[in-house]
Write a protein that binds this DNA or RNA. Structure first.
Lengths: 169, 169
DNA sequence: GTGGTTGCAAATGATTTGCAGTCCC
DNA sequence: GGGACTGCAAATCATTTGCAACCAC
């Protein structure tokens, strides 16, 4: 299965309307998203959300789970996976990219949208944003009658340190 | 598995032979890439290459395998996977994106680099290219000392037909 | 109460890999 | 002839799911 949409009642894609959302705490946002779907605000979900917000770097589901448990939270890996899905649907989490080892995430709260420069050697991820970039995309979409919802640009290469260390063949 | 650099991006890939490469047939390119690594030009690899080139759409490893076998080629799925890796390393194939169902590819031969507009409803993939887009990226990379090798921009949304059919919330 | 939750273990599904028999160079 | 290849089946691995005990509302 894939792409699930929130059974909304009147809520446009969370990340598309930032004004109202940015005023609430992420906890309130989650609570609201859950209530809208008649789901429950459990201790496990709170723990995962807190960890996600505290992690100011990209992470995958396993790492997050390990981190949580290391801090004493009693959350199974299955619940981590299930909660990540909920957070994504609540617009609090974004999947940055997938590779052989699975999905990589970052939290969204308080962050502007941005693109990624991914180092193939050390895995470091740099970020940048550009309004012009968005314009170009919108233009391309418009020309094709395509309605964009979200996008991601990934540039793979070598970061400064790794580049210096890499001998080209 | 090792991330390999593909011949694609602003400057022609420096290490992978660039100059005379563009004039050769894809078969010759593969043959050469294999020889360089002391690998063999087998009937199975030829069959996979032919199928990859004949497929003018995005595909995944399973589909390609099924297609090959349907045409009578005696190629196991394991070999399809192994060969796709070889073709990618030879610069004849590109991984477009990954989702829950795995990797999606497209052949590179004779195609300009381009970005993708992916319909979340019907799965259709539209393409576009933009020199300005590349400039912006290069600029961002330069500013961070990042050496870009390849990139991909994916815009997710709804294509014209699906958009018309979609009742918005 | 009771419908949504959770942990656990088993199930998935794409992709990889160990082997033994084959086949290019 | 020997190292590379191939098919097959077993192995991986991240992620999902069935189920019975639990818990938020």
């Amino acid at each position: 299965m894939a792409e699930r949409s929130l059974p909304r009642t009147a809520a446009p894609a969370p990340h598309l309307r930032a004004e109202k959302g940015e005023r609430q705490t992420p906890e309130a946002i989650l609570r609201q998203a859950l209530k809208r779907r008649r789901l429950k605000y459990t201790a496990e979900r709170q723990a995962v959300l807190r960890e996600v917000l505290d992690t100011h770097a990209h992470f995958d589901a396993r790492q997050l789970g390990r981190l949580l448990r290391k801090r004493g939270a009693r959350v199974s890996q299955a619940t981590v996976y299930r909660t990540l899905t909920v957070l994504r649907e609540a617009g609090l989490l974004r999947e940055v990219f997938r590779d052989a080892q699975g999905s990589h995430f970052e939290h969204v709260y308080g962050h502007e949208h941005h693109e990624h420069l991914i180092c193939l050697r050390c895995g470091k991820v740099l970020e940048f944003q550009s309004a012009r970039l968005e314009e170009i995309q919108d233009e391309a979409c418009r020309a094709r009658g395509f309605r964009p919802l979200r996008h991601q640009l990934q540039v793979f290469g070598y970061c400064e340190e790794c580049d210096a260390r890499t001998i080209d063949d």
